[in-house]
Design a protein around this nucleic acid. Sequence first.
DNA 1: TCCTTATTGAGATTGAGTCTCAAAGAAGTT
DNA 2: AACTTCTTTGAGACTCAATCTCAATAAGGA
Lengths: 141, 141
Amino acid sequence: MSKGLKRLKKILHNEGLRFTSQREAVWNEIISSDDHREADEIYMAIRQKGISVSRATVYRTIDVLLKNNFVRKLDLGVGPSKFEHRIDSHHHDHIICIQCGRIDEFLVDQIEDLQDKVAKEYGFKLVRHIHQLFGLCENCQ
Amino acid sequence: MSKGLKRLKKILHNEGLRFTSQREAVWNEIISSDDHREADEIYMAIRQKGISVSRATVYRTIDVLLKNNFVRKLDLGVGPSKFEHRIDSHHHDHIICIQCGRIDEFLVDQIEDLQDKVAKEYGFKLVRHIHQLFGLCENCQ
DNA sequence: TCCTTATTGAGATTGAGTCTCAAAGAAGTT
DNA sequence: AACTTCTTTGAGACTCAATCTCAATAAGGA
C-alpha cells in the first residue's frame, strides 16, 4: 500500500469515515495520471477496469480528497470541472488553449508575492486563488 | 440617447441585428449599476420597472454585450455567473470574500506584465485571463 | 404599408452536480 | 465468528443555471 494511500486511510479513520473499495478505486484512478480530468472520465476509467462504482460515489470521494488537499479542482468556466492530484506536486497555475483544450502549468514566484501584497492591501486573509491564462497555443494560432 | 447606447445601436446594425426595446432595457439596467450582478437579478430589476422581458432574452442580450466587450462575465466557481459593465472602466481583477461575498477590484501592472511573459514563454497568444483571489475580508476574519 | 427576417417568450430541455433512502458493508465489541 | 452500530453505496430523482424550440411578434428597409 502506497504512502499516500496510507495517509488517506489514516485521515478517513480520524474523521470517523470508512475505507471502502470504492474510495480506494477512485484514489488509485486519480493518482494514476497527471492529466486534468473530469469526474466522468475518472468514473468511466474505473468502470473500464471492471470495478463497480457509481457516479455519485466518484463525486463524493473527490469531495473527500478535495477537503484533504489530495486533489485540486479546476473550474475552466465552461464544461465540467477538471481534477488533478497533488501528490508530489508543488503549487502552480494554468495556461489553457481555448482552441484545443491543452493545459500547461506555470508558476511565477513574483506573481504569488504580488498576490499576497494585494490581499494585505485590501485587508483580506488569503485562502486560495485562481489564475488562469486563456489563449491560443503554438499549434492553434 | 447615451454615447454607449448609440455605439450599441450601431454595432447591432452592422451585424444585421435589431435594436429592440428589450435589448435597450437590458442595456439600461446593466449600465445603471457598478455592482457585480447575476442574470436573474438583472432580469428581476427590469421586470420591477414594469418592462416586459423574459429570462431567455436577458441571457441572449448579455451574450451580445459580452461579445462586444460592453460587459464582462465573472464566474466565481459557485452559483450563477455575475456580470459587470465595462463602460468607463479599465481592466481589473477581483478579490472575493468567501464568507460575505464582497467583491473588490484590483489591478497590478506588474502582474499583467508577468502574465504576458508567461504566455510568451509557453508560445501562447494570450486572449484573456482570470485572476481571482479568495479569502476573508476584514469584517469576516 | 408591405415584406422579409430577426427577436421574443413560455416552457421544455440540457447537463453538471447533489440528494434520497433502502440495502450493503466497515469496523469495533463481545 | 457473530453481533451491533453507523457510514457508505447506488439508482435514479432532483436542482439549478443556462440554453433551446418554435410559433407569434415586431424591426426596419423598400
